[in-house]
Write a protein that binds this DNA or RNA. Structure first.
Lengths: 324, 324
DNA sequence: TGGTATAATGATAGCGCTATCATTTTGTAA
DNA sequence: TTACAAAATGATAGCGCTATCATTATACCA
């Protein structure tokens, strides 16, 4: 079933059929009708591969999520859902790529979850293929469109919340990964301390694997080794869930005995008690913005996009005044 | 950058270059080396669209998830992750489609989350495009490869668990949706009751919207209207979380005052206390099996696949003996 | 009625690759 | 050396569509 078959039946040339499909306004109504009848009769279905080859447009965006990243992670899911919403409006499909192999059946790339080394790699990869690239994070790279959460600001805000509630002995449980957000959140934490005149040296920072067990173990250690600490900032909500379990297990109350804050805000609130005060990362929105940015590029935009999205505090039930 | 450029540089024909890329064993080592040098020097990158057009193979599987289904649902993402694992081994990419429009840039289709009406629609759609289709669920359709959880069996098992623990007054909170799994779980529930000699008429079944709030409201009603009930089966874990909240809010204990069981088993266990006994749906594995089935079809298999995967009970802390 | 502008349609050459068949080269045995 | 088979390479025709330019039909005005 090709344009040719339809053309033959309708008694026109194939290009006229193509026009009826792609720009019907260019075809005289009488002819158009004739062609449409033929299209219907033959139940014509276009071959998008052939169109892609001829027009150099495929209608697919590749979302690159390295194989090391767990797809079922809510962070990833919300990100992908945001992308999906925007792309479907623009008649783009998207595919999820887990590695950078020879294929590149797409018009452009969105990437997330990259380690620093991987940024150079995908930059080269997309350049070789002459396709635009937009990134979640890594805003330090001048030649790539990037959008990120302002991790430093978020960490600072939430640490300040602890301080404002009278906590002078605070601690941070951070993630054991070579990613910017780790450093940025640690930086925000330190800045909040310094601005409040608290010596960061006196405020422990524990490194843990980013899962519930990691948070649990770190908090357990913290309770034993630093009994003076009254407020804890966990670099992720996942860590915070583990930490909360450890606190309760130790027979302490949240927030009466220990105040706890997290970072992510991806819906755990419905599931955990007490609800942990946290920083909401607008991941869904960032997915949307990145998709919009990429589409703008595909439509010819030359504007370099660099955005730092300020996160919001979500105040819940896990912070109390010291001795209050 | 085309095969032609490489061929010119290497002093061979384009087809020889194509062979070096696709079936190097057919090329004499000396020639192969010459071509490989040229490939490297020019940094050749293949155009997969052209290859797809010429070979009628694209290397993409479309996963159709209707736009009505929330992508951030863990059910969906585990399913997708299972598909992803298998496909990446077979050098296929996959793309997520949210609606059935004119595009069909793929070798075959995997679909989930379909309403009954939508099954016919996608069946016709894929037939017109001459592409194989495999489905999660809807095993009643004789002409489609389908794999499903045995929902009836799972619901029966978990209801029996309540009965075995002495609960004679049980209730079910079911989902308000026109899907098979709804009916099947209700059926399993009823069968378990009947086999135990309990009249289903005396065991309430409440319909709720499938979210935490829905479960909460339904449970609240149940406590007021049916105080005799001592064991509740929720058709989804999401409902069970809401139900658990309602029970605790009412000042009752789980499982001392009320036993509670769910259905899904998708990792909420880490987040909710007490952990709810549930039925584990092997969604990830079903994603894998569907992907394998589709690939078998693409490789020429003619075997109709119909599988009902038996789910497992996950025994946790939310069921106790009556008056025990 | 003729001439010109404009609308409508058509012919044809790719897009970059693979499949098919044809040709050339190489290897082996008589 | 010759003959023949097998291995290696090449020429060419698509795959089904769109872009580009050429041609033909129609409209409009003087």
């Amino acid at each position: 079933m090709r344009l040719e078959d339809v053309a033959k039946l309708a008694g026109v040339s194939i290009i006229t059929v193509s026009r009826v499909i792609n720009s019907p306004e260019l075809v005289k109504p009488a002819t158009r009708e004739k062609v449409e009848r033929a299209l219907n009769e033959l139940n014509y279905v276009q071959n998008p591969v052939a169109r892609a080859l001829a027009s150099n447009k495929i209608g697919i965006i590749a979302v690159y999520i390295p194989a090391a990243i767990d797809l079922t992670n809510p962070f990833v899911m919300h990100f992908v859902a945001g992308i999906s919403e925007v792309l479907s409006k623009h008649v783009y499909s998207f595919l999820i790529r887990r590695e950078l192999d020879n294929e590149h059946l797409c018009d452009g790339y969105i990437a997330t979850g990259l380690l620093k080394d991987e940024v150079k790699q995908i930059y080269q990869y997309t350049n070789e293929r002459n396709r635009p690239l937009v990134l979640f994070g890594h805003t330090e790279h001048p030649d790539i469109d990037c959008i990120d959460v302002d991790n430093t600001l978020g960490a600072k805000k939430v640490t300040q919340l602890l301080i404002e509630n009278g906590h002078r002995h605070v601690a941070m449980i951070n993630v054991d990964e070579d990613k910017d957000y780790t450093l940025d959140r640690a930086l925000g934490y330190r800045r909040a301390l310094e601005e409040a005149g608290i010596d960061p040296q006196h405020c422990p920072q524990i490194i843990a694997v980013n899962n519930v067990e990691g948070g649990y173990g770190a908090m357990k250690r913290l309770i034993v080794e630093h009994p003076e600490v009254s407020g804890v900032f966990c670099a992720t909500d996942t860590l915070a869930i583990g930490a909360a379990n450890a606190i309760l297990k130790a027979g302490k109350k949240i927030p009466a005995d220990l105040s706890l804050v997290g970072f992510d805000g991806l819906g755990h609130d419905l599931l955990v008690r007490p609800n942990v005060t946290t920083v909401h990362q607008p991941v869904y929105e960032i997915g949307m913005r990145l998709a919009e940015t990429l589409i703008a590029r595909l439509n010819g935009s030359q504007k370099r996009v660099k955005e730092l999205v300020p996160p919001d505090l979500i105040l819940r039930d896990s912070v109390a005044r010291v001795n209050g």
